[in-house]
Design a protein around this nucleic acid. Structure first.
Length: 607
RNA sequence: GGGGCUGUAGCUCAGCCGGAUAGAGCGACGGUUUCCUAAACCGUAGGUCGUGGGUUCGAGUCCCGCCAGCCCCGCCA
């Protein structure tokens, strides 16, 4: 619908200018234009689009809205290009102009998409993909020596979905895993291990990740309680950061251990990610401080080197600092984030040369990023026209509305969460098979349970607006009805069923379908219109970085399809109708597969 | 104390640049199966959009105040 919207906006704008030449000239002189305010129709009975401009213009034109709409209508009807696109428009309510695309225009657009692997979604304009500067999506970012938990789940899934959408649009995307592999935590952990389990620091696989997590917890407790330990740990950090070989070796072992565990999760979730941890930026930390010093932004306060923020105040009304070098000479996470931003925007080969950097982290870090972005901007590290943004998300909560925990009060391990989703799916599937007296082999059951279980977890996370906290519930996400992954997957399965029963879906080519598609039923037209919205929705997701918009669309498409499937026969229809309906099935399946694919969700032929 | 986010049906959530009578799903109640997988479909009930002002032809949406919940606020990340 994007193409139509653009064309109509132009035609309506021109019609307004013809109807009100003086007002149009005045608007243009003021650097504006008479805006027809074209929008998607708010209800199906209003057609495809509505123009709200007449209401807004009433005051400045000193005319009644309906009068303006009438004048606009007259100009539009005189435009043959418009008449070829739309049925005669209707003036409705206080002065809305309702526009309905001609059926043959819709059918032709649908036909066009049957032969298009991109289903009508355009590539970004501009240079070829190879010449374009990269977009960096920074997501997932677990910590070494800790297990991944639900918090990482959100970042991982949302980041992956956004990266997939941007890639599909033709952006070269650099997916970066900014793992926490540096800093005070390692000082703590290495100091503790040296004392209680030195073998873990010299021998690969001497301890597994579970042990490491326990050691980490003990180390943290000692760090918080014991000043002597704290001092030793800080010294250990300095040793590590200055490249002491023993510390380096210990650190490397710890990282390898954790990395293997992370890779398993990413593999299961089908997520591709380039690891570039905090340690990567270690060589650049001193330069960050030097740059800030040279730019005159550094202030030493209580022994720490700080940049004070403009427009952000702390407790006593004083400006908030971003500390870039601690009083003990060490660097902290803000320094690392500044080094990262500096490197990512710097021109190659000294950096990534990015044009857009997206950080997918929890909303609690909003202040931190606002501060870091401001410092980076004032230091001149963000080029003109480049974009840098924090894409925040809310907490994962339990049924009690508090941060999700296990019954014993621990954080929920991601691995356990995924296992449980798949197990629950499998149990449900086995029960269903028994009820329906279906026989399926074990590999089918495993495949379906795995696909549906992981799809459910991902979809539940992606389908709410990311900024709000969301309540985690296996029962809801695995429900077979409603706005859930199983419901969407089932729609794909139904279409696969039609193909199995002899429906020719064209096998990837458009040639199987007639040039003139013909529809008569309202359910068919509703489905046609829904299918044609894909390009608009993708553009919106890219603009707003909100995957839930894509989820809503896919859910609505599935609902519309299920109504069609229920009420309109396909295989038993007479030949002309049958071919046109098969085209709808084919495009629905393609759209669902593409859309779910962009969410990182795999589909099934049977379930 | 300062700042951020959130508050919409019993529950979980949508709601796009301010547009027409506020939308889903679940749950509740009532229906639909000689037909492409009923993991579906159809219908009914359910709302003072936290609250009080303001801006506007028009406010769930924008502005201000207040209330409630969550989060952040100097050397952890």
């Amino acid at each position: 619908m994007l193409r139509f919207a653009q064309t109509l906006d132009r035609q309506l704008g021109a019609a307004l200018e013809r109807a009100f030449p003086e007002a149009a000239a005045a608007a243009i002189a003021a650097g504006r234009r008479l805006d027809p305010q074209l929008a998607a129709a708010s209800k199906p009975e209003f057609g495809d689009f509505q123009a709200n401009g007449a209401l807004a213009l009433a005051k400045s034109l000193k005319q009644a809205p309906r009068q303006i709409a009438t004048a606009l209508l007259a100009e539009l009807e005189a435009d043959p290009a418009f008449a070829a696109l739309c049925l005669p428009p209707q003036i409705a309510g206080p002065g809305f102009l309702n526009l309905t695309l001609r059926p043959e225009v819709l059918a032709a657009e649908l036909r066009r998409r049957l032969g298009d692997a991109r289903l009508g979604v355009p590539l970004v304009e501009g240079q070829s993909a190879a010449a374009r500067p990269p977009v960096i999506v920074d997501f997932s970012s677990p910590n070494i020596a800790k297990e991944m938990h639900v918090g990482h789940l959100r970042s991982t899934i949302i980041g992956d979905a956004l990266a997939r959408v941007l890639e599909f649009r033709g952006h070269p995307v650099l997916r970066l895993n900014h793992v926490g592999d540096w800093g005070t935590q390692f000082g703590m952990l290495i100091t503790h291990l040296k004392q209680v389990a030195p073998e873990a620091l010299s021998t690969a696989d001497a301890v597994d990740l579970g042990d490491l997590v326990a050691f980490y917890r003990q180390a943290k407790q000692r760090f918080d309680a014991d000043e002597v330990f704290q001092a030793t740990a800080r010294e250990e950090v300095v040793k590590l950061q200055s490249g002491d070989p023993v510390s380096r070796r210990a650190w490397q072992l710890l990282c390898d251990q954790s990395r293997r565990e992370f890779e398993q999760i990413y593999g299961r979730l089908d997520i591709r990610l380039s690891e570039r941890g905090e340690s990567f930026y270690n060589p650049y930390l001193a330069a960050v401080v030097a740059d800030l010093e040279a730019a005159g932004l550094l202030v030493v306060d209580a022994g720490a080197k700080c940049v004070f923020l403009e427009g952000m105040q702390g407790k006593d009304g004083n400006p908030l600092p971003v500390i870039v070098q601690k009083s003990d000479g060490g660097f902290n996470y803000a320094t690392t984030d500044l080094a990262a931003i500096r490197y990512r925007f710097a021109a190659p080969p000294a950096g990534d040369g990015a044009s857009w950097v997206i950080y997918v982290t929890d909303a609690g870090q909003a202040h931190h990023f606002a501060g870091v972005f401001q410092v980076a901007r004032r230091a001149g590290w963000i080029p003109e026209g480049a974009r840098v943004e924090h894409v925040p998300f809310g907490l994962v909560q339990g049924d009690d509305g508090k941060k999700l925990k296990t019954r014993s009060g621990d954080t929920v391990r991601l691995k356990d969460l995924l296992d449980e989703a798949v197990e629950r799916c499998e149990a449900d599937l086995r029960r269903r098979l028994a009820e329906e007296e279906r026989q399926e082999d074990e590999s089918f059951i495993t495949q379906v349970a795995t696909t549906v279980g992981l799809a459910a977890v991902k979809y539940a996370d992606l389908s709410t607006n990311r900024i709000t906290n969301y309540q985690f519930s296996f029962d809801r996400m695995l429900a077979l009805q409603g706005n859930t992954a199983p419901y969407l997957l089932y729609a794909v399965v139904r279409i696969a069923g039609i193909a199995r029963k002899g429906g020719d879906l064209g096998g990837g080519a458009a040639a199987a379908f007639p040039d003139l598609l013909q529809y008569s039923e309202p359910q068919e037209w509703t489905l046609v219109r829904e299918l044609l919205k894909l390009d608009t929705v993708i553009a919106e997701v890219e603009q707003e970085l909100l995957p839930n918009r894509l989820c809503s669309y896919l859910f609505e498409l599935s609902q519309v399809f299920n109504r069609f499937y229920d009420q309109v026969p396909v295989l038993k229809a007479e030949p002309a109708a049958r071919a046109s309906r098969l085209a709808l099935c084919r495009l629905t399946a393609d759209t669902l597969k593409l859309g779910l694919g962009l969410l990182g969700i795999a589909t099934l032929e049977r379930m």
